[in-house]
Design a protein around this nucleic acid. Structure first.
Length: 415
DNA sequence: TCTGGGGTCCTAGGACCC
DNA sequence: TCTGGGGTCCTAGGACCC
């Protein structure tokens, strides 16, 4: 049974920042950050100073005084990300896209056309470089997990092929943090029992691992550490939930103050659900207080929702229960809405009523239909004239929005 | 002027049913 | 009458990823 390494993991290097450096040559070789109030992405030169995504701009500037902030070219990110992934698609249809700048591909079926996986990886890297002016690192291995680790090891601008005979030798010297699913909390727990390398993790008994991290995590990490996780390439995922959130700085824990923001969030989410005809049954609201502790309240309905007004009403009621349950919290720092239990993607675009009536039960009620028609009208106007031409939450547009909508949209997964 | 915004998955406890 | 078990759904919280 001859097994060969045919899984590629391709990852564009410091993607947003690299696009900016490609568009503006004077930025090349310099520490730059996309964003302003918050760092959305940092160049390698900036990362060397400890600057990273999600960091407040103020902190970043303190770490790296010569840091150059640039506004994002979000349309370019979309175009170039799509183009890079399309290069993979020229070799095989078996492409699993993970995000705007990252994808797996299985080239087992196309080596007779294009040569061995390593040659394919080299061809992809040189095409992305020549056609798009971007560096893309690639890992090649027998499994997805190992290919992903290999591409991380390959960065920046590199290629690492893991020979099937040398998998464990490659894997076991690496730190556990490189593994998929090990973040700061799990790494700290493992360090607590003296485990810092993947090899040490592999040699830790399942019993100890299960007790430390839970059964599912123990089983998963054990399989990954021995590279026994034969997950296949999945070309289309079905998204399970859709949400929106907004950091508020510090706002009083007052429903009248918070309502406009909540309405704006409900509008964003409901519009996306309607656009793909994927209403959902479970609505959850998250409220984060000043000390960054967050509380979630959720409700599952008998029938799915996608009407803005209905979603907003449910979200308001949930927010109210949070505030009622925490009477001593005076300050709110973030609001979030998420809808899950989404209807299956419609193969046929049926124009079904997606509203609910007052009791939340009968989708076909007069009020539900009226709301749906109002939503449809708003959707149509926005399609023609843009998002801000009409609609809810205009008041909320005034509150500090540290992240541009264009950036949010890049992070949205296709429903 | 204490850390963004989009997601996924797992766990634990309780309700409910058979 | 008492006790137990399994399965499913729901909610809240947490860790993680890009």
């Amino acid at each position: 049974m001859e097994t060969t390494a045919t899984i590629l993991h391709a990852d564009l290097d410091a993607f947003y920042a690299s696009v900016e450096q490609k568009l503006e040559p004077s930025l090349r070789g310099k520490p730059i950050a996309v964003g302003g109030g918050v760092v959305l992405a940092a160049s390698y030169e900036a990362k060397a100073f400890g600057v990273h995504g999600g960091m407040p701009g103020r902190t970043a500037r303190a770490l790296c005084p010569q840091l150059i902030f640039v506004g994002g070219h979000f349309e370019e990110y979309r175009r170039l990300g799509d183009a890079a992934i399309a290069v993979l698609g020229d070799f095989t249809p078996l492409v699993e896209r993970l995000s705007i700048d990252e994808a797996f591909a299985d080239v087992a079926g196309c080596t007779h056309l294009f040569g061995p996986p390593e040659a394919i990886a080299r061809a992809i890297r040189s095409r992305v470089s020549a056609e798009l002016g971007l560096a893309i690192s690639i890992g090649v291995a027998r499994t997805k997990h190992l290919a992903k680790i290999a591409s991380q090891v390959a960065k920046p601008d590199g290629l690492v092929v893991v020979d099937p005979d040398r998998e464990l030798a490659f894997l076991h010297d690496l730190p556990v943090e490189l593994m998929w699913g090990i973040g700061p909390a799990t790494a700290a727990r493992l360090a607590g029992i003296g485990v810092t390398t993947i090899g040490q993790l592999a040699r830790t008994g399942r019993g100890a691992l299960d007790r430390l991290l839970g059964n599912a995590a123990g089983q998963k990490l054990s399989a990954l550490a021995w590279n026994r996780d034969p997950r296949a390439i999945r070309t289309h995922h079905r998204v399970q939930s859709a949400g929106a959130q907004s950091a508020l700085g510090r706002q009083p824990a007052d429903p009248d103050v918070l309502r406009p923001t909540l309405l704006h969030l409900a509008d964003r989410v409901a519009t996306r659900l309607r656009a793909k005809s994927r209403p959902g049954r479970t609505v959850s609201v998250r409220v984060r207080f000043a000390d960054l502790r967050a509380v979630t309240r959720a409700v599952t309905l008998d029938a799915p929702v996608a009407a803005t007004a209905m979603l907003a009403e449910i979200a308001e009621a949930l927010m109210q229960t949070v505030l009622d349950d925490h009477p001593y919290e005076k300050t709110v720092s973030l609001l979030a809405i998420s809808v899950s239990h989404l209807d299956a993607p419609a193969t046929l675009q049926l124009d079904l009523p997606l509203g609910l009536d007052d009791e939340g039960r009968r989708p076909g009620s007069a009020r539900g239909l009226a709301r749906l028609q109002a939503d449809r009208a708003v959707d149509a106007i926005r399609d023609r004239f843009g998002w801000e031409a009409i609609g809810y939450g205009r008041v909320a547009l005034g509150v500090a929005r540290s992240v541009p909508d264009a950036f949010r949209e890049l992070a949205e997964k296709e429903l």
